[in-house]
Amino acid sequence: MSHDHDHPSYLQHHFDTPEQQFTSSKLGMWLFLATEVLMFGGLFCAYSVYRGNHPEIFMYAHQFLDTKLGAINTVVLLCSSLTMAWAVRAAQLGQKRLLPFMLILTLAGAFGFMGIKYIEYSSKFDHGLLWARAYEPHEEGHHGDDHGDGHEAGAADHGAAHDGGDDHGDADHNGAADHNGASDHNGDAAHEAAAGDHGGEQAEALPDGVLEILPSGLKVEKSTIAPPGSAPSGTVLTVSDDGHGEHHGPEPEKTKVFFSIYFLMTGLHGIHVLGGIVVIFWLLFKSLGGAFGPEYYTPVDLVGLYWHLVDLIWIFLFPLLYLIH
C-alpha cells in the first residue's frame, strides 16, 4: 500500500513483496508440519512403550496384518508423492495442462491407498481383530476351542464366552468381565445405567460403587483396584521365538493393545489422507481455473509439503506395524 509499484492481486496488504509472502507461508507450513510430527510422535511414543515392554505381543500380532497389502500401499503412496512433487514443478513452470493432470494422478494414488486400507480394515472387522474393548478374534485355529463355542453362542452374550476359560489372559474374569462383555455389545449402556438409575437393585439407593454417604455429604467409595487373589490372570503364556514362519501360535497377554495401536496409528494417518484428498481436490479446481503459475503457486507447494509428510509417516508405519521380525 505504501509502495506504489505494482501490487499483484495475490499479494496481501500487510506484505511488502511476493517473496516475503511466499517465505512466510513456507515458514508457517513447516511449523504446521512440526505440530503434525509431534502429534504423531505421541502415538509413536505409545507404540515404543508397548513394544519395548511387551515385544511378544508385536511378534505375535503383526502376523494378522497383510504385508503384501501394506507394501502395495507403500508403493502407491510413494508414487503419489512423486506426482505431487511433479505437480509443484508443473505449477512453477506454468505448465497449465500438466498441473491438473498430476493432481489427478495424486488423487488416484490417495484413493487407491484408502481403497486398500478399506480392504484391510474390513478383514480386521470380519475377524474381530479390533481395539482392546472390541477385541474378540474368531478365526479358526488361533484361539482356544472353547472360545469358538462362545462365539457360536451368539454375539449377544459374549460375556459368557469370556467366562468360559478362554486364553485371553486379560484378568478380567471377576467382575471386570461383565464390564468388558457388556460394553462390547451394548456400548456404554452399562455406564449409563450406573449413572442414570442409581442402584436399581441396591436397597439403600446408593450409586454404584459407593459404600456409604457420610452425613457431611462425603461418599465412601469401594476400591476399584482388584487385588491379585480375586482376579486370577489367564494362563501364563510364553511365545515361541520363531513366531514368524509358523502361523499364529499361542496368544500373549495384552495382544488387544496391539490392535488398539494399529487402529490408532493407521486411523489417524488415514484421516490425514482424507484431509489431503479434500485439499488436493480444492487445488484441482483452482488449477483448472488457471490460478497458479510461476509467480504464484504457494498453495500447490504447501499442499505438496503436507502430502509428503503424510507419505513420510507411512514410511515409518509400514515397517513398524507390518514388518516385525
Binding site: 505421541g42 505409545a46 482392546a132 474393548r133 472390541a134 486379560d170 488387544k256 487402529f263
Partner: peptide
Amino acid sequence: LLIAERAMGIGIFDPALG
C-alpha cells in the same frame, strides 16, 4: 487418546484392558 479410551475402549491408558 482419552476420547478414544472412553468412546471405544482402546485401553492404552486403562490397566483393565492391558
